[in-house]
């Protein structure tokens, strides 16, 4: 079924220029964005991008003598469209810092240690119910080199491919109860409080299953619906 893409409520999306985030005023357009009516070109998109890339699996905490250091966590994520329908077969890319707040990346020269058993990236495809699971360690917080007291709270990056070009999403997921959430410049660039809350994963009290990991659940909603609301 063709997808319908409607304008988003601006308050549920981040401002493009963020006070205290010095790259944003240099890289975001000054001119007004051009309004267009989506055509077939924007309402199609790569359904099988996974065939072009190498999948990495969702179990990235390591096993045996190669276990990453940190709090073992299970992330259970569901990917839905605006109708609440599962988005199955979607390519998901995830990356995060290690438990000490350090990324394996040439750009990260933070003083926190690298964990040789943790690369911190998963790439997989959602199942038919739009679900995917990650076994990882909880990322640490880290200071941003603005050197003015901005620390990123623990967070996980996601890059997702929906059914059409306009449903492509890059986002970040946060953890509940983190004191740094309240002052993070990226999380708080979203004006609407409820929309910010939806970027925070839900903590699931332990039930003994799995026995070794804390569980967090999260929901991601990609743009697009099968039909306009109100229509039969």
């Amino acid at each position: 079924m063709p997808s319908v893409i409607q304008p988003r409520d601006e308050r549920t999306q981040p401002s493009r220029i963020v006070p205290g985030y010095p790259q944003t005023p240099l890289r975001n357009p000054q001119q007004s964005l051009v309004k267009r009516a989506p055509t077939l070109s924007e309402l199609t998109g790569p359904l099988d991008a996974a065939k072009r890339v190498r999948l990495l699996g969702g179990d990235i905490a390591g096993h045996g003598g190669k276990q990453a250091i940190g709090q073992l966590i299970h992330l259970k994520v569901r990917v839905l469209d605006e109708d609440g329908a599962p988005v199955g077969g979607a390519l998901v890319e995830m990356w995060q810092a290690n438990a000490a707040g350090r990324y394996i990346h040439p750009n990260d020269d933070d003083r926190a240690p690298v964990d040789l058993n943790f690369y911190g990236a998963a790439r997989l495809v959602t199942d038919e119910s739009g679900a995917f699971e990650l076994r990882t360690v909880k990322p640490g917080a880290y200071p941003v080199p603005t050197n003015d007291g901005w620390w990123r709270p623990p967070h996980v990056h996601f890059s997702m491919f929906g059914k059409v070009w306009l449903s492509r999403l890059v986002t970040q997921m946060y953890f509940p109860g983190e004191p740094l959430n309240a002052q993070d410049r990226i999380l708080n660039a979203v004006p609407d409080a409820a929309a910010r809350d939806r970027l925070v994963a839900r903590y699931v009290p332990p039930t003994g299953n799995p026995p070794d990991a804390l569980v967090f659940e999260h929901q991601i909603v990609l743009r697009g619906r099968a039909s306009t609301p109100g229509q039969p």
Binding site: Q172, R196, L222, R223
Partner: peptide, 28 residues
């Protein structure tokens, strides 16, 4: 979830640490 109307998730920056291995050889 018939009749549901969910709000699209808020976007965020890619940040400076997008894994180089995600730019697969030949993907261009």
């Amino acid at each position: 979830m018939k009749g549901a109307s969910l709000v699209p998730t808020g976007e965020a920056t890619l940040g400076p640490f997008f894994p180089p291995r995600y730019v697969d050889e030949g993907a261009n």
